[in-house]
Simulated assay, not measured.
Amino acid sequence: MRKGKVLVVGSNATRIEIQGGGTGPTGQYLNETVVPVIALVDAGYEIVLATPNGTKPYIDPVSDVAQHFGGDEAAYRHGRGFFDDNPAMNNVRTLRSVIDDGLDGYAGVFVPGGQAPVVDLMQDAELGEILRHFHARGKPTAFLCHGPIASLAALPQAKQYRAALIAGDVTKGAELAKDWQYAGYKMTVFSASEEKPIEEHVLHGKLYFNMPDAMRLAGAHVTTNAVDFSPHVIEDRELITGQNPRSDHPIAAKLVAALDRVAVSA
């Protein structure tokens, strides 16, 4: 018997803007997607995957390796097979259809990372509607790695906020960020120092803004680990955030525990 439904929000982005013009390759990270989702399924939760356009998320090739599964080839193959073949990963819905069918039936929501959410999810009005619904009801809401940047979609003018970040207009950004639902929350997110090797070796250019600064400007209390790529998860009220790819198992455990607490009290 299933305990409840969890909405997993994926990205459709495959390119991300870099300073000076042009774009670099991006996508959603495999381990950040499947490790928490498999944990949710094993714990008895039903998964509904939705993206802005209703197509399956694009997996960033740099994440499609055993290295991101602790070097465990069997764990990598299991994760890859789950993403490729499990019905929950292939019956993809649009965010709009999920909203139209009603959000009350969902116990929680999870947004994995990779840089892709920086492109589409952080400025997606439908995701904003979803997040405001979950926030108002205090339902478990989890974001991993770059995923926490998608929490900014809850802003009424999320598109304009992102544009202000790209333009480097801090004053305008601060004005647009007023009354953000998650202002004052303790969070973590992929750090500026962790971003550097991605910029140098994958993007071959710098992003227009880093994730911690973008969230602090909106009012988040962001902390990141001093040691890059070490696991780090913060839970504050209904919000659970993980810093980097190696936070995949810890955030999965915290999300399952939060959902179970709600299920028991219901």
Results as ranks from 00 to 15, higher is better:
Gly10Gln: 15
Val37Asn: 05
Asn90His: 02
Arg80Asp: 00
Arg137Lys: 09
Tyr208Thr: 04
Gly70Asn: 02
Gly105Leu: 09
Lys3Gln: 15
Pro57Ile: 09
Pro197Trp: 05
Gly20Asn: 14
Glu32Arg: 10
Ala74Lys: 11
Ala253Pro: 09
Arg246Ala: 13
Asp248Gly: 09
Glu46Pro: 10
Phe82Glu: 00
Gly147Leu: 05
Phe82Gln: 00
Ala263Trp: 12
Ala226Lys: 15
Arg162Phe: 13
Val119Ala: 10
Arg237Met: 15
Asp100Leu: 11
Thr26Met: 11
Phe143His: 05
Gln28Thr: 11
Val262Phe: 05
Leu144His: 08
Thr224Asn: 07
Asp101Ser: 15
Lys56Cys: 08
Val92Pro: 01
Met1Ala: 13
Gly27Ser: 12
Val8Gln: 13
Ala226Asp: 11
Pro212His: 01
Val170Gly: 04
Lys178Trp: 01
Tyr76Lys: 02
Ala66Asn: 06
Val227Cys: 06
Asp120Thr: 06
Ala43Trp: 07
Ala88Phe: 03
Val264Lys: 14
Gln28Arg: 10
Ala125Asn: 09
Leu103Gln: 04
Ile166Lys: 12
Thr23His: 14
Ile47Ser: 03
Glu126Cys: 00
Gln67Leu: 13
Lys3Asp: 15
Ala39Glu: 11
Gly242Cys: 06
Tyr76Phe: 15
Leu49Val: 09
Arg96Gln: 09
Gln157Leu: 11
Asp42Cys: 05
Ala220Asp: 04
Leu176Glu: 00
Ala164Gln: 06
Ala39Gly: 08
Gly219Lys: 03
Thr94Asn: 00
Asn91Lys: 05
Gly105Gln: 09
Val264Arg: 13
Leu103Lys: 07
Gly70Thr: 02
Ala154Cys: 08
Asn53Lys: 12
Ala88Thr: 00
Val118Met: 15
Lys206Gly: 03
Thr51Tyr: 10
Ala74Asp: 06
Ala154Leu: 08
His204Glu: 09
Arg80Leu: 05
Tyr106Ser: 05
Ile234Asn: 05
Lys159Thr: 11
Gly173Pro: 00
Thr241Leu: 05
Ile166Arg: 10
Leu239Ser: 09
Ala107Met: 10
Thr55Ala: 12
Ala107Ser: 11
Asn53Arg: 14
Ala116Gln: 11
Ala252Cys: 09
Gln160Ser: 15
Leu165Ala: 06
Pro140Met: 02
Met187Gln: 03
Arg2Val: 12
Lys254Ile: 08
Met89Asn: 00
Met211Ile: 07
Ser97Val: 04
Ala257Ser: 13
Lys206Ala: 14
Asp248Ile: 08
Pro197Ala: 06
Ala116Phe: 13
Thr94Phe: 01
Gly21Thr: 13
Arg15Lys: 14
Val256Met: 06
Leu207Lys: 05
Arg77Asn: 07
Ala153Arg: 07
Pro25Ala: 15
Ile47Lys: 04
Tyr185Gln: 08
Gly113Ala: 08
Ser97Thr: 10
Glu17Asn: 14
Thr241Cys: 06
Trp180Arg: 00
Pro148Tyr: 04
Lys159Pro: 08
Leu131Gly: 01
Gly113Ser: 09
Ile130Ser: 01
Lys139Asn: 01
Ser63Gln: 03
Lys178Val: 02
Glu235Val: 13
Asp72Val: 07
Gly184Cys: 02
Ala263Val: 09
Ala167Asn: 05
Glu73Gln: 13
Leu121Thr: 07
Tyr29Ser: 14
Gln19Ser: 12
Tyr161Lys: 05
Ala164Asn: 06
Lys159Gln: 12
Val41Ala: 10
Val256Ser: 03
Glu129His: 06
Gln157Cys: 11
Leu152Pro: 04
Ala252Lys: 11
Val264Gly: 03
Asp179Phe: 00
Pro61Asp: 12
